[in-house]
Nucleic acid binder design. Structure first.
Length: 265
DNA sequence: ATGGTAGGTATCCTA
C-alpha cells in the first residue's frame, strides 16, 4: 500500500480555500496534516474538507492561535491531543492510520524575537517544549512503533536549511541552542529526517519565506522550518519526498509551503 | 540598521 502524507502550515485555514484546492489537485495527498489553522473546531471548514475528499478528520484547534488538524482519505482512529509545558495550546495531534502508522502532527512555538530564555518567555517555552518532547520520545525509544512525525517545528537545523547560516546564528529558528535541541529530540528516538534522505543535505532547501520580503523568490531568504520524520520501523518505507516551493507564489499564499513524503507499506 | 506583510481580534498581539 502506497501512502502520500503532506504537511502544511496554512496560516489560517479559513483564508486558504484556493491553496487547499490546489494542494488537493496538484499533490493529491492521502493524508494532509495542517498547522496554524487558527480556528476553533466548530468553525473549521469541514464541508470544504469533505468536498475535497477527506471524510476522516482529526481537528484540534482554538480561537485565533495555533491549531493542528489531520485530514485523511484513509480511516483515521484513536485521535488524541498531547499537551506540553502545562499549557492548553492546541499544538500536537496524534492519530492512527492504516498500516499501523502512528501519526504525530506538531506545531512548535516560533519563540519570539530574542533568543534568550531569561528575558523572552516565548523562547523559554519553545526550549521547554523541545525538552518535554525529547523526554517523551526517549522513554519510547526501541518500542518498534511505526511513527510519522510531521509539522512546523519552527527550527531550521542544517546550515543549508537557511539562506545564510552565519547571519542567522543569532536569529530565532537557527540558533545553536535550538538546532541542538531539535537534533537531540530526533536522536532520542532514532528518527530519520525523511526529506533530507531524498534531497541531499548539501543542497539548500527552504519551506518558509517571510511575507515581509519585497520579492520572496528574488531575495530567496528562506528557512526549512517544516519537517517529516520517520521512526526506525518506517525508515525503509520511504519512496520519495518533495517541497512544493511554487506554492509560495500562489494566489493568497501561506508563508509556508507543503512538504510531502511517499511511503510504501 | 531598520522595517517590511499577513492574520486574528478588536486597536494590539503573533508570526
Amino acid at each position: 500500500m502506497r501512502v502520500r502524507i503532506t504537511t502544511w502550515n496554512a496560516n489560517s485555514i479559513r483564508k486558504r480555500e484556493k491553496a487547499l484546492r490546489r494542494i488537493v489537485a496538484e499533490i493529491a495527498p492521502d493524508v494532509l496534516c495542517l498547522q496554524e489553522t487558527k480556528v476553533e473546531d466548530a468553525k473549521f471548514p469541514h464541508a470544504l474538507a469533505s468536498e475535497l475528499g477527506f471524510p476522516y478528520r482529526w481537528v484540534h484547534g482554538q480561537k485565533g492561535y495555533h491549531g493542528v488538524a489531520v485530514l485523511s482519505k484513509l480511516p483515521l482512529s484513536e485521535p488524541r491531543a498531547l499537551k506540553w509545558c502545562g499549557v492548553e495550546d492546541c499544538r500536537h495531534a496524534v492519530c492512527r492510520l492504516p498500516g499501523d502508522i502512528e501519526l504525530h502532527d506538531l506545531y512548535i512555538p516560533a519563540g519570539g524575537d530574542i533568543p534568550d530564555p531569561e528575558i523572552n518567555p516565548k523562547f523559554a517555552h519553545k526550549l521547554a517544549m523541545l525538552r518535554e518532547l525529547r523526554a517523551y520520545f526517549a522513554d519510547r525509544r526501541g518500542d518498534g512503533a511505526k511513527l510519522v512525525l510531521v509539522g512546523d517545528l519552527n527550527i531550521a537545523p542544517l546550515e543549508t536549511d537557511v539562506w545564510n547560516h552565519r547571519a542567522l546564528l543569532d536569529v530565532v529558528s537557527h540558533t545553536p541552542v535550538e538546532t541542538e535541541a531539535l537534533l537531540a529530540l530526533q536522536k532520542a528516538y532514532g528518527f530519520t529526517d525523511a526529506v533530507r534522505t531524498v534531497i541531499p543535505p548539501e543542497k539548500k532547501l527552504y519551506t518558509w519565506w517571510s511575507y515581509r520580503a519585497r520579492d520572496w523568490a528574488a531575495s530567496d531568504r528562506g528557512r526549512r522550518l517544516d519537517h517529516i520524520w520517520l521512526s526506525p520501523a518506517l525508515a525503509g518505507a520511504l519512496r520519495g519526498a518533495e517541497v512544493r516551493r511554487e506554492a509560495r507564489g500562489w494566489e493568497e499564499p501561506s508563508d509556508h509551503v507543503p512538504v510531502t513524503v511517499d511511503l510504501e507499506l
